[in-house]
Structures are given as C-alpha cells and as structure tokens.
Design a protein around this nucleic acid. Structure first.
Lengths: 339, 339
DNA sequence: CTGAAAGCGCTTACAG
DNA sequence: CTGAAAGCGCTTACAG
C-alpha cells in the first residue's frame, strides 16, 4: 500500500524503463516497442497511476483545455450550444472550462484573464462586443479564439453564428405582412449585448423602410426573465393600449409577455401578436405555440469545437467567418392585425 | 517589447527582489513590506504578468479548482444550481470545472477520472447512485466531496439535498386527497437516477398505504424531453383511458404531457390532473400553471460551494448531511378527480 | 526505439 | 520581512 500518489518515476521504476519512455508510451504509443508498452501499461494499472495534469501542462505548455464564457448558462439555448461544444471537445480528449459573465463586459474580462492564467489552449466567447482589453489579453497569449453566436463578414476576428440583423428583418417583415403598424419591443439590454442590439436594429430598419418608427416609450429593455417581461408588457400596454405587435428579445421574454396578455384578458394572436427568439425545445409544445426565430445553437456549438481543435492542433491563428441561417418559424402567436 | 510571456523571474528582476518575495506578494501580501509590495505590483502591471496556473498547481499541490459533474446542463434546474455553485466559488477565487454525464454512470466515472487527473481540490456529484469506482477514485485523492441533490441521513458520504421520497409522498397524498385512484407515471430512467427512483418510490408507498397500486403498464420511463413525454402520455392513455392523474418526473415532462392532453382534447385539470417536479422559473407563467414540487436548487448550489471551500481550506474530510425541504406547490393542473 | 538531463514557472521550508 | 535553493511531476530535444 503506497500512501503517496504514484508518479511517472514510480511507473518507470516498476516497468524498468526511463521516465521518458513512460511519457512516450502515454503520448506517442507507437514510438515504443509493444512489449515495453505492455510492461508500462501493467505498471500503470497496478499502481493506479494518474498523470498530473499540472506537471504535464507546465512541461508541454499545453493544457488540453478550452475555455468558454457565456452570458449565462441558465438559458437552455446557451446550454444546448455548450453541450455540443463540450461533447466535441470531450471526443478529442479536451476539457471545457466554463465561465459566465452575467451579461457584464467587465466580468467577462475578469473571467478571460482567469482562464488565460489557468492556461487554456483556445477560447470561445459569445457575441462580438467585448471589453477592448479582452482582445488584447487573448492576442498576447496567441491562442485560437472565436466569437460565437454572431456573424459579421467584416469582423477582425473569427466568428461562428448568424446575422441578427437579418433575423430582425424577417420578424418585422412577417408582422408587416400581417398588417401591423403599431409595435412594442421587449428587448434584452442592448448596451452590453450586441445580439439584442442587432436584432432590434434589424426590426427598426425594416420598419423604417415603410416609414414606420417605434417611439422610445414603446421600447423596454430588461433582464431575460419571465417576470420582468411580464411587467414590461403591462407597462407597454399601459403606455399605449393600441399596440398590436410585440417583438420580444427571446422566447423567455415572450413567455412572460404571453402571461401578461393573458392576465389582461387580451387574446393572442387575435388582439395582439407576440414573437420570441431562439425556438427553445419546449416552445412548440406550449399553447399558444410561439412564432419565433430558430437559433442554430447546436450547430454553432459543434462547429466551435471543430474550429478550436483544428486550430490548436495545427497551431494556426487565421480568421474564419462561418454563417449559419436563422429561420423564422411562424406558429400561433402572430396573426393579422386587428380591425 | 518582450515577445515572451513574462514569468515570475522577470517580475522579480524588474522589482529588484527575489522570486520568493514576488510569490509572497501574490499569495500572502501582508507578509511583504508595503513599499516592496508596491514596487512588485508596478512591475507586474508594467510587464502584464499573469501567473502560470500550471506551475502554481504543481508547486503548491493546489489548483483552486473544483469539479462538478451534473447529468446535463441542458435543464434549467441544474443550471440554476451550477450558477450559484459557481458564483460562490468565484468569490473565493476558485474556478468551477463543469462536466456532464448524460445520466450515464460509466460516463460519470470517466469524467471523474479526468477531473481528478486534471487536479481538482474538491468535487460535487449529483445524486447518491454512482459507479463504485467513483467513490474509490475520489477517496484515493483525499479531496472533499459531496453528493448534491440528495439527502440520506444514513449515507456514508456528505450530501446536500432533499428527501425525494417525502416529495413523492406529498405529491401522492395531494392527489389522493382530491379523490384520485387511477394513476399513471411518466418518469425519468430510474436505473441510473436515484432521484427519479426515490420520487417514484415515495408515490408508490403513499398509494400502497391506501391499498392502491400502479400497474407496470401505466409506468413509463423516458428521457427528460418534452417530445418523449408527449408521446408517453398518448401511450398511457391508449393503454388505459380511465387514468385521472399523471405524475411526471419533472416539469419538462409535465409540459410534454400537458401538450398531449391538449392534442387529445382532454381538459386539464377537469378530466386529468398532471403534476411536475422542480418548479422551473417559467412554470407559474404558463397556462395552466403546473402543480409541482419546488427543488431548492439555488440554495443547494450555494451550500455546495460553501461546503467545499471550508473543507478545502481546513483540510478536513468529515461527513456532513444537509437537508433542505421541497414543498408541494399547488397550482392549476390538479383538481378533484372527475365523476 | 530508448535514456540522461535540462527545463517548464512556480512555492515553501529553512536560514537569516 | 527577505533570499537561496530544492522540489513539484512531467516533456522534449539531443545522443545513441
């Protein structure tokens, strides 16, 4: 019974080889003779040897770890992406270090620094809007990096995502086609969230094309919570009872808005149309089922894993910009404008 | 312009002190004279020095990292717990390493080993049912460990959670009080999920006390997905149209069941009562709002952070068992049994 | 295919 | 309060 955790030296001694050979056996097995390999594997098994990640990282300058910072994991849409990112990494024997910024740019910077000091081989962030020092810090470390959930052909950085402006366009056009002209907006905070901002810009632009404008007073920004959205819709309707269409920043907000409409006895979609964003798993099973836009979260997550792994393995840092499409999904919460 | 990442030696040189002093300045600031400290901090800042986590971990045998393995992060209820676990750790300058097992015990074991080799100072798992080697591996590493989401006064391991049997009792009693006698169950897979198993056992026990028994054919186990629950309810109702109460393993399943009832034109709760579990954030805003049981996920998550941190700092490994209560929340999906 | 040895960047008794 | 030096457990040219 050894009461000390066995090291590579213990394995080497037991297998009667050098530590260098044990190391090779672990990392480049074909470079060691099969019979030796067998002896080493037996020793490893007998000793219950587990390599020290810290020592390996220090010596090899590789951690086999990738960092990701999302605004929150408490949103099924990010969870889906992370789940897929993670499984892509796990298959390649990489581990995901997950942090969340709570939609704060300063907090995100802190997390980036912490991950960097921890030693990561690659990093993924959500959106394109970050603290300027974030880019600085990452570039200093010379590791592959990608902005997820956003697509900007002119970005200086790699990105994997979709065009939020286009998505906003589609939403607005759909509502316009249904004859709506009186809009309200319940959005996430746009100052620190470029996805929220761009979606709104998209809506705004499409409306402007037909000379429609949403007054400041009918745009509410709030935290992505059902409760906040509920009170926001009440607020909006108090300010202007003639609104016939509400665009919500995501499905969670839309669920809150739906509940407020119900409380007011306003029927959706007959009197009021409501749209969401993301197409969360449960949405089609709700009644009424939300009209929303599909965020390709799983595909983005998987792609991020692939991107990072290939760039880490090849030690390349060139920029890639991948665009996925986000389709409008019309369901039961939008209909012709009343009257 | 240095084109090499600065090390502690560079800082030491620039500040004209030894590396030992820089190290102390970082870890035990009060042990170094204020003026020296200032010089060092300036050097750190000027150089843009970031300590190497790997080197620190290797030398100190501490990683300031805690591992957590949950069945899936794609469930808002686990996300909430993780969010709180994480924020507790972050405040103490620890980082959370998150992995998920996909409800597989073998996968969980793999993840445990990977985390252990990575070097973690503590670990939290969900539930009490694990691969026997999981306990073995963790004990060999002598790090604090806690089973979350479960409370068992007789457990050999620390646990922070609630009593799933009691929760099942409450659910069944509520339905019994409403006059139900014909039950159906849509549960998660019980073989690898002790929470699912115990909740069911709780229901079963309470029913048995009044001589009621749920036949095998009216118990369906499935993945925690809305779609699966939807088809499960159809299946159940095909097998026995006289069922008046359905207990679902969690809220996600209940939402699926609700949608199936709607598809069949069965009114809830008049003709059919449905219960969920967890009380996810959106539940009270849905229509009908689910009768469910509140899982104290946030409190469990925070407590896990506290538990781990204190045991890591004090290098203690004694067992603690913390019980939270899970209350039944009666809303709109349960009512008196028809007829 | 294998080994001796330097080195990765820190921490930590030990002395002073 | 500070420094010299050993050591943490690996990897990796370099030789052979």
């Amino acid at each position: 019974m050894q009461n000390k955790t066995p090291t590579i030296a213990d394995v080497a001694e037991k297998a009667e080889v050098s530590t260098a050979t044990v190391s090779r056996c672990l990392n480049l097995p074909d470079k060691v003779k099969p019979e030796v390999r067998e002896r080493i594997n037996k020793a490893i098994h007998d000793l219950g040897y587990v390599p020290s990640g810290a020592a390996r990282a220090l010596a090899s300058r590789r951690t086999y770890t990738v960092g990701a910072i999302v605004p929150t994991i408490d949103n099924s849409i990010f969870s889906e992406a992370i789940q897929h990112l993670q499984s892509g990494l796990t298959q390649a024997n990489y581990t995901l270090l997950l942090a969340n910024s709570g939609y704060s740019l300063d907090e995100e910077l802190r997390e980036v620094k912490s991950l960097l000091s921890r030693g990561i081989d690659g990093i993924v962030l959500v959106g394109e809007m970050h603290h300027p020092k974030v880019y600085e810090a990452i570039e200093q470390h010379k590791i592959p990096y990608v902005n997820l959930w956003t697509y900007n052909p002119k970005s200086r950085y790699s990105c994997i995502g979709f065009d939020h402006i286009k998505a906003g366009n589609q939403l607005a056009q759909h509502l316009l086609d249904l004859g709506h002209s009186k809009f309200g907006i319940i959005s996430g905070f746009q100052e620190t969230n470029d996805r929220a901002l761009l979606r709104f810009k998209g809506i705004q632009k499409t409306l402007k094309a037909v000379d429609l404008e949403i007054p400041e007073s009918l745009i509410i920004e709030c935290r992505y919570s059902v409760a906040k959205a509920n009170s926001s819709l009440h607020e909006l309707l108090d300010r202007d009872p003639d609104i016939t269409a509400i665009c919500c920043g995501n499905d969670v907000l839309a669920i809150g808005a739906l509940s407020a409409a119900r409380e007011r006895g306003i029927s959706v979609p007959d009197q009021l149309s409501i749209t969401g964003f993301d197409n969360m798993e449960i949405i089609p099973y709700l009644s009424p089922a939300l009209t929303t836009v599909n965020s390709p979260s799983k595909r983005m997550g998987s792609h991020a894993a692939k991107y990072l792994l290939s760039h880490i393995e090849n030690k390349t840092l060139d920029i890639e910009r991948i665009e996925y499409t986000a389709e409008l999904i019309v369901r039961e919460t939008t209909a012709k404008a009343p009257k």
